Each structure stands twice: as C-alpha cells, then as structure tokens.
Simulated scan of single mutants.
Amino acid sequence: MQTGLTDNDIIQLVRKGDQQAFAQLVTKYQNYVFTIILRYLPSREDAEEVAQDVFVKAYRSLGDFRGESKFSTWLYTITTTTCITFLRKNKLDVQSLDNEKVFAQADNMDGGMRANQVEQKSRVAMVNQAIKMLSPEDAQVITLFYKGEQSLDEIAQVLGQETNAVKVRLHRARQRLKEKMEKYFAQEVKDLAHY
C-alpha cells in the first residue's frame, strides 16, 4: 500500500486500473461516512449496510468525480443521498408526538443517557453524544465543518446555500451544541477545563 498520496493521487491510480488503491480511501473515510450515516439511521446494522453501499457507489462513480471539490465533499453527497434513499425504501416508522408512549420512550432514553455519562469520559464520545442531541440540520453542519473538515464554501456547495448563510447556521449550531454540553455534560466540561 502506498502512503503519502493525496486523495486525487489515489483516485488517479484507481482510474488507471489499480483497484486496490481504493482501499486507502475506504480506510481514510470509513469513520467519516459511518458518522454521517448514524445521523440518519439509528440501527448499527442498517448503518453498516448503507456504508457498504456508499463505498460501492463511490467506486462505481469515481469516473464522474471532477475534482472541483474535495473528495470528502463529493463522498458526503453520496452518503446523504444513499441514506435518504434507504429511508424512503424502508419507510421507517414515524410516531406522532401525541402518542404518550413516544414521550415515555424519550424519557427513558434521556435517563439512559445520564447513566451513560459516567462511562463516557472521553472528549470525543461526549461531543458525539451532544451532537446527537442536536437537530439534524445542526448536526449536519457541525459534522461537515469539524469532522469532515470542510470549508464554509464547500459546505455551502453541498447544502446549496450561500456561504454567509452557512456561516450563520454554523454559529447558531455551535451555540446550541455549547448549550447541550453545559446542560447534559456540565461536570465533564468542568473536568476538562482543569486540564
């Protein structure tokens, strides 16, 4: 396996017939893709299935990648489209907010989350947990900016919005993330501040 290659170098190798080179892209981006998928699909089995589909689609469509954006931006688009297609095909059960059982389940989930806080001391796990509490729109922009390392311009391109609108959206999402961190992880945040 060759190292020190850029994504575009690897893509060129794959296009020239080196199918094994694609494994480097899979290794590099598998956590990124899986994190995005889990925003859409709570089931780990479904997420694993969709992740495989994403990389198969990316491999088959690699000839269409023009290099006008980062590979990760292009891969993000494939990932979200694949998730939405999966959700449409499976028509996941949607519950009415009027249903009292939904509120009971939400209360149980909240109680479980508080119990798990003690076990999740790592900074990454704590932040990921807080991101899951955000709306899908906030989680999306936070994930693209921090985990996907996308620029504001690249995020604007992915979302089909103006760069300034993305900047405002990211600022607001950060504020809401901070509020979640302070509300649900107050002690952990204090502990981290002492390091």
Rank of each mutant, 00 (worst) to 15 (best):
K70L: 00
S122Y: 14
L92H: 12
F185C: 12
K180P: 01
L92N: 08
D53Y: 08
S122P: 08
T82G: 06
Y76G: 08
S69A: 03
Q129A: 14
R174H: 10
V54Y: 13
T82R: 09
Q175Y: 06
G148P: 15
T79K: 02
Y146G: 03
M109P: 04
E162L: 04
G148R: 09
R60T: 07
F185E: 13
L152S: 13
Y195R: 00
R66C: 01
A165R: 11
K167N: 14
F55G: 12
Q52K: 11
L62M: 09
S61G: 06
N116D: 15
L192P: 03
F103G: 00
I142L: 00
Q117A: 13
N128Y: 11
N128E: 15
V141W: 10
K183G: 01
M113R: 11
M113C: 06
D64K: 05
Q157D: 14
D191Y: 05
R88S: 00
Q129N: 15
V158Y: 04
L159R: 10
T79W: 10
F145R: 09
D98T: 00
F71D: 11
F103T: 01
M181R: 08
R123S: 00
S96W: 07
V189H: 00
A186H: 15
D107W: 09
A106G: 02
N99Y: 14
A104C: 02
F55H: 12
F65M: 02
T163G: 12
R123N: 07
L177H: 00
T81G: 15
N99T: 01
A139L: 10
L62R: 09
Q187I: 01
D191H: 05
V158N: 10
D107G: 01
R172Y: 15
Y195V: 07
G148C: 04
C83N: 03
T163V: 15
R88I: 00
A173K: 14
G148L: 00
D93P: 07
N108H: 10
F86Q: 06
Q157E: 08
R172S: 06
R123A: 03
A115P: 13
D153P: 15
T143G: 01
V54G: 03
P136K: 14
F55C: 05
T80P: 15
D64E: 06
K101H: 02
V127D: 08
F71C: 02
K167W: 10
N90I: 02
Q105M: 06
K57E: 05
A106V: 08
V127G: 04
V166F: 04
I155C: 13
G148W: 10
G111C: 07
F71V: 11
L62D: 13
F86C: 02
V141Q: 08
E162I: 00
L75R: 14
D64T: 00
T77P: 06
L75M: 08
D64N: 09
A58F: 12
G112F: 14
H194I: 02
K132N: 10
G111K: 11
V102A: 00
L87S: 07
A139C: 04
T163M: 12
E182Q: 07
V158E: 11
F145Q: 07
E68Y: 11
L192I: 04
E162F: 04
N99E: 05
I131Y: 14
T80M: 07
T85S: 13
A130S: 09
H194N: 01
